[in-house]
Write a protein that binds this DNA or RNA. Structure first.
Ligand SMILES: [Mn+2]
Ligand SMILES: [Mn+2]
Ligand SMILES: [Zn+2]
Ligand SMILES: [Zn+2]
Lengths: 138, 138
DNA sequence: TTCAAGACCTAGACTTAATCTAAACGCAAT
DNA sequence: ATTGCGTTTAGATTAAGTCTAGGTCTTGAA
């Protein structure tokens, strides 16, 4: 997470300050879907002086630059997603945990015949329970 | 919207107070997907003394009794939906407005082969622009 | 009819997520 | 050294939502 992360930010047109690298090292690597405050809590362990505003600003900057996506899928919680490609989501109803489903795992038919709507993107939101195999995998 | 609405509430096991009938008359009839504060603003026009807490309590009660569904689809906003059957959603990216798509309008394949996940429900969230025809229809 | 008991409602305090503000900081070019 | 600019900071602010404690309304039994 040293110069590799810094270069990743530079390539996206972002000045790699120490705070931004610390946020990136966590949020761009995890396969969780953390909220902003979860990111703050996590990054503060290794960077105790970082402020809440900086974490929020940094996450929003990463979204604007295409390094992150932002979703609100459940509970009114806004989460961040390092998986910026197309994919679907599975929400475990017991734990609230969000899992990624590969784009090819599902297919949606009849989208073109949606009369009156110009479709730009879509994804499937699935709810249920993740079995232990999936919990381990993620 | 007088005794009809009251009976609807009674049938759901809800005591039809004046406040609850006023909330129901709007939120169970609209095909919008209003937030709690939008419901409050609307109901206050005809019932100026109703409190915020009552609107929130009433909406949550309706959800618990199965008269409403609650979604968080975009912008971290929690919205209420009088359409309690299965259906999909279309979000207009310009206006933020949410439209219902009939269940049969789309079909999702390969859901049963989702290894490691026990599916309880799912729906498709589509984003794009609603053409004027759809805007009129809704 | 009266009048508790319980259900319901209300204003306002509180909590939490998120943004805003204005000052301070850090670093590079002059 | 001085300036300037991008970045960070603490704290104030806004907004969604819940909670509390007391007041009001309904209801049904005496
Ligand atoms: Mn609202
Ligand atoms: Mn909020
Ligand atoms: Zn994801
Ligand atoms: Zn709907």
């Amino acid at each position: 997470m040293g110069p590799r992360t810094a270069n990743l930010l530079r390539d996206a047109g972002i000045q790699p300050s120490a705070q931004r690298v610390a946020v990136a090292a966590y949020v761009l690597e995890t396969c969780d879907h953390p909220t902003a405050d979860q990111v703050w809590a996590r990054v503060r362990k290794s960077f105790p002086m970082i402020s809440r505003a900086t974490v929020y600003n940094t996450l929003n900057l990463f979204v604007k630059k295409g390094l992150l996506r932002q979703y609100t899928l459940a509970d009114g919680k806004t989460v961040f997603d390092a998986n910026v490609g197309r994919h679907h989501h599975f929400i475990d109803e017991r734990t609230g945990r969000i899992y990624d489903l590969p784009w090819e795992a599902l297919s949606v038919a009849k989208l073109d015949s949606l009369d009156g709507f110009e479709v730009r993107e879509y994804h499937v939101v699935v709810r249920g329970r993740a079995k232990s195999a999936a919990r381990r995998r993620a």
